[in-house]
Design a protein around this nucleic acid. Structure first.
Length: 462
RNA sequence: GGCGGCAUCGCCAAGUGGUAAGGCAAAGGUCUGCAAAACCUUCACCGUCGGUUCAAAUCCGACUGCCGCCUCCA
């Protein structure tokens, strides 16, 4: 498995710390609102990575944090006059609903920041004791001067980091504008925690250090997130964690690039801002949205458009049709020449694509070539029952990584519906087409679409 | 202002030195009671201009456009 490691800007062979197991930390949402499709591009890709490792035989231990305390969550909960917990509970629930719709496999751990205050305090106390952190004015800050490696991930020269245009330096009471907050002392009217550090709340970055190390250990395999997190968030995580433990923090960093809409940045003011809920209300299937979010290699900007989404729907249908035909057709027994070789070759091409820095486009190429060949064989009438089953299993194996097929197959017909299909067949044999069409319409009204193929009748849910 | 990324057929998107994967759309055909699905055929000299090389979409330079980072946004 080769992956592009942001840490050194190179393609590297992935070797896990523990054989057969991957420790994975993925930066999760700040739960102040519904997540948007840009967020979901990252989460869907992370799911793809997780599934890829599982496909390759690894056991994955994934941690995704839920940031439930920050300026935005505090401000909004106050505006609504509810507690921080009540406010964030609502969006955490929405988040879980959304990722379930997108077919994202749950992580092993979803730690909430506010449930891990003691762990964060412990790290901060240690950093204070080591003289790496200092208390000043309204908070506790990390002293970058004590961490020479700072800037390695983002490839920023510390000396060149200036107080940017976006920061009003006067607002901060720290010794160096570059230093970042570990702890913020309680402000009037804001939620706070009573700790050995005093009353206050954690800075943003410390939660990820505390929670990742708690569940994955001081050094772990893989840390992912959006490119915008490289600096300062991930840079700060490295500084805090390594200053605390004296050990390397993360071995491989993977960063997902952004999503743009119609070639331009997604923003509320441009009216091109989309949430998953919004798209579903417009009638798009979550599987298709997942497909689109997945369809571009993670290190490239993904261009979202409704045009593209509509095309994805068709493209997706091709995959589903193939599976439907394999599962929903009554095949006889038949010898299929070269079956094993073909399946074997497809699997190895598929695997090679995944192992090449998670090249999903190549993996999809393999999938569609597989479907093409399968359809060709179907049209030639070469497929028997056992072959159809093997092909279907191979397809499902590929799909265990994409997760695009409707889950649990398409179910079974009721006895009555089966009877109707039989009845229609009888009418067709008798060439009584008006009656056959009437029965077909009857089934369609129940959501069952009947299609006649060379290999027999098949059905699917409309 | 500093740093970085991207630019491939109408659309989505692989390919990073040896002459353009795949999907959608489109056109023609086959199959078919109809419909759908499927199959066959057709469909690109890779943003612009220079350079390096026997050979470049692939390397170098300039330009144009878009995107991102430069302290709390995936």
């Amino acid at each position: 498995m080769k992956i592009f490691n942001t840490l050194n800007g190179r393609m590297e062979e992935f070797v896990s710390l523990k054989e057969g197991e991957v420790g994975l930390y993925t930066c999760g949402p700040t739960v102040y609102d519904y997540a948007h499709i840009g967020n979901f591009r990252a989460y869907v890709f992370e799911d793809f990575v997780r599934r890829t490792f599982e496909y390759l035989g690894y056991r994955v231990v994934q941690v995704m944090n839920l940031t439930d305390v920050d300026d935005k969550t505090i401000r909004r909960s106050q505006q609504e006059g509810v507690t921080l917990r009540e406010y964030t509970d609502r969006y955490i629930q929405a988040f879980f609903e959304d990722i379930a719709l997108l077919g994202i496999e749950p992580a092993e751990h979803y730690p909430r920041a506010t449930d891990h205050i003691p762990e964060m305090v412990a790290i901060i106390e240690d950093l204070l004791a080591k003289g790496i952190a200092y208390r000043k004015g309204d908070g506790i800050y990390f002293d970058l001067a004590k961490f020479p490696k700072y800037g390695a991930l983002a490839k920023l020269d510390k000396a060149q980091l200036k107080s940017g245009a976006r920061v009003d330096v006067d607002e901060y009471d720290k010794e160096n504008v570059q230093d970042f907050a570990l702890w913020k002392e309680a402000k009037e009217g804001e939620p706070f925690w009573e700790t050995s550090l005093g009353k206050g709340r954690p800075g943003w970055h410390i939660e990820c250090s505390a929670m990742s190390m708690k569940y994955l250990g001081p050094t772990f395999d893989l840390h992912m997130g959006g490119v915008d997190n490289i600096f300062p968030h991930h840079e700060n995580e490295i500084a805090q964690s390594e200053a605390h433990t004296g050990k390397p923090f993360v071995r491989y960093w993977l960063h997902v690039h952004h999503l743009i809409v119609d070639g331009t940045k997604m923003s509320k003011s441009l009216g091109n801002f989309h949430t998953l809920r919004g798209l579903i209300e417009k009638g798009f299937r979550p599987e298709v949205i997942r497909f689109l979010l997945l369809s571009t290699h993670y290190r490239k900007t993904l261009n979202f458009s409704f045009d593209a989404l509509a095309q994805m729907e068709k493209s997706w249908q091709r995959i589903v049709n193939f599976q439907t035909e394999l599962e929903g057709t009554l095949f006889g027994e038949k010898e299929t020449p070269g079956l094993e070789d073909w399946l074997q070759e497809s699997r190895s091409k598929f695997r090679a694509a995944l192992e090449d820095d998670l090249n999903i486009s190549q993996a999809l190429n393999t999938l569609f070539e597989f479907i093409k060949e399968g359809n060709l064989r179907l049209s030639r009438g070469e497929i028997g029952a056992s072959a159809a089953n093997l092909i279907s299993e191979t397809l499902k194996g590929f799909d265990s990584v994409f997760n695009l097929l409707p889950r649990g197959g398409q179910g079974e017909l009721t006895e009555e519906q089966k009877g109707l299909v039989e009845e229609r067949n009888r009418f067709r044999r008798e060439k009584n087409f008006p009656e056959a069409d009437r029965v077909r319409k009857l089934l369609l009204d129940q959501g069952i679409l009947i299609e006649d193929t060379r290999n027999g009748v098949r059905w699917k849910r409309a």
